Simulated assay, not measured.
Amino acid sequence: MNNQFELSKKSQDFLENLRAYLFWSGKNADEVEDIVKELETHLSEAEKNGKSVEKIIGQSPKEYMEMISNEMTVDYRTWFQYICIIIFGSFSFTIFLDLAEGNLSYSILEIVGHIVIVAVFIATLFPGAKYISTGQHFIKKQGIVIAGIAVLPMVLFVGLIYLNQVIETPVIHFGSARSLAVGIITALFIIGISIWAKSWILIVIIGMFTLPNYFLHITSLQYETQLTLSTIISFGGIGIYFWILSKLEKSK
């Protein structure tokens, strides 16, 4: 029998939290897995001998996680790749949404503001995810942190839209040919990332946000009706997709 199935739920939860904590600390994924597997063996042997989790990790899981993290080096190369993926991925959403309405055109303020907002998101995502992964906080506190990480960039994007209306900066117009080229390159990027991640999530989310908006845009429906239907279809479709994923996961 696999060691993981012999562990108590408390030990399994700690290993999952440790894996997440080290990941969000920028450690190499292979090294993280090696450490988690080694600790899994120690915990399994300890529990077989009637010892508690605390006998291995001490009374403070957070301090134990920090100790292991401090002994490991940061994988800067891999995390630079992740950060680039987040930046270009966020631009992909904007590009596809705008392509559904016509040719691309962006002001300098929009481009710079978008980069700044993504930087702020990354700066809050990493420490926030580490905070949650320690597993020592109430669900209410974790929910507040998650909500803060999700809502902050939305608020900033709304602010950017307002600033772009009141502050004039040079606008870059791509035209039909260049807009099409940018769309193709972006699509190839999304497909490549999805193949690398072995997941359809990114493609499904982008499709759910852009396709309903595009098809409704070419109808004779009023703008308010289009916006309402697009929102319902997009979030409803994404919700159904994640529901199907959860059902498939449980059936394994």
Rank of each mutant, 00 (worst) to 15 (best):
K10F: 01
M72T: 03
N164I: 00
S25R: 11
G239V: 12
H137V: 03
F138C: 03
A123C: 06
S194V: 13
T225H: 06
Y241E: 05
P212Y: 09
L152E: 09
L43E: 06
N2P: 15
L109G: 09
V53P: 00
Y214I: 04
V74S: 02
Q226E: 11
E249D: 13
K140Q: 07
I87C: 00
L227D: 07
F242S: 00
I57G: 02
I232Q: 05
W196E: 09
N3K: 15
L109D: 09
E249C: 00
K55S: 14
Y82T: 06
I117M: 10
T78Q: 08
V158G: 04
P127I: 02
G159R: 05
K141S: 13
I85M: 02
A123K: 13
L160M: 10
S90K: 00
S234C: 14
Y214M: 08
R77I: 04
F235M: 12
R77D: 03
G236Y: 06
F93S: 09
S60F: 01
G183H: 06
V204W: 00
N213L: 14
D34L: 07
F5Q: 14
R178Q: 12
L97T: 01
P212C: 08
I238F: 07
K9W: 04
Q136V: 10
D98S: 10
S11D: 09
N103Y: 11
V116M: 11
L109M: 11
L43M: 14
T94Q: 12
P153C: 06
H217T: 03
I132T: 08
I85A: 14
A29M: 05
V53M: 15
T169M: 09
N28E: 13
K37V: 05
D75C: 04
F242R: 03
I117C: 10
I144L: 14
L43C: 07
M154C: 11
T228M: 12
F93Q: 05
T78L: 14
R19S: 15
I184M: 08
F126W: 08
S11M: 09
V171F: 05
I233W: 06
S90I: 03
T219Q: 12
I108H: 04
S44D: 14
E38Y: 02
K140L: 10
A129K: 01
L229I: 15
Q59G: 04
S230T: 10
I132S: 09
I191R: 08
L15N: 06
S107M: 07
S246C: 00
Y223N: 07
I122V: 15
G89L: 08
Y214N: 02
A123T: 06
H42L: 05
C84V: 01
D75K: 01
V145E: 03
K250W: 02
F157W: 08
I115V: 15
I206N: 06
N103H: 09
V151K: 02
D98M: 10
S25N: 11
D98W: 01
W79N: 15
I184H: 07
Y82H: 12
G58L: 11
Y223W: 02
G239Q: 13
D34Q: 13
V166Y: 08
F126H: 02
L221Q: 02
I201G: 01
W243Q: 01
Y82V: 10
L99M: 12
K198V: 06
G113D: 09
F235C: 03
G102W: 01
G135Q: 03
F189W: 10
S52V: 05
Y162T: 04
T219P: 07
H114D: 06
K130F: 02
G58N: 10
L180M: 14
